[in-house]
Amino acid sequence: MEPRHRAAIPITVIAMLLGFMLTVQISSLTGKSSGSSTQDYLTTLTQANEQQQENDLLNTQIAQTKAQLATYQSSGDTVKERREALLKDQANAEAAAGIAPMSGAGLVITLSADQSLPGYSQNIKFFDPQIVLAYLVNLLYSQGAAGISIQGAAGEQQRLVTTSYIRDITQTTIGGESYFSSVEVDQLTIPAPFTIRAVGNASNMQAILTAEDFTQEMQNFGMDCIVTPSNSIKLAGYDGVMPGTYAKEVNTQ
């Protein structure tokens, strides 16, 4: 009998320890499912913050529209008064569309081929202004640029609007190397060097260019890139083709 009792004790202890471990393991699994409710909480919190932001933007738009309505409601019936109300409405619509000129603080970015840069002879042929300008414009808008224009060598400036596009068109050979040196922006030919003007928060826009190492990337192509903040940038208004042939305003009233 005695040896059996003696063996039973350590076996019991081992069994208790195994049970304890099993308990700890099960309770940590329960902890993992509370981790998934953490995920639900974070997802819901993100959605709530995004919805709040959207509601704030909607409120701003409602206030602006009601202010325009008030213009009409307070105007008289004469042709002159009705014209004035319509002109005020048009001023807002043109500002929103990019048809009105714009001025303010922002950044001026110039891109020009530089044969003295080490990357020029090998990489200039890979410089694609359509891709680079579209990428640059996207970066600037991400930092709240309110208006952007692209200017070419001959001084022509094209303001970017909703329907704007950028396409490579012609190549130039400099120093034995060919690269796309002209783009078409909204049916306007814009030859390099390119000057991009952006009205908005200069330090935010500069920060994203630094974060993306934009200047260095351009130099690797053999393109000199100069970024200059300015307090007085002037953007021309858009004067190209207007939509309305196919897209018609929906009247819900």
Binding site: Q61, Q90, A93, E94, A96, A97, G98, I99, V161, T162, T163, Y238, M242, P243, G244, A247, K248, E249, V250, T252
Partner: peptide
């Protein structure tokens, strides 16, 4: 037309 270009109106 300005509003359509601005995108601030529903269009069809």
């Amino acid at each position: 037309e300005d509003r359509i270009l601005a995108g601030t109106t529903e269009v069809k």
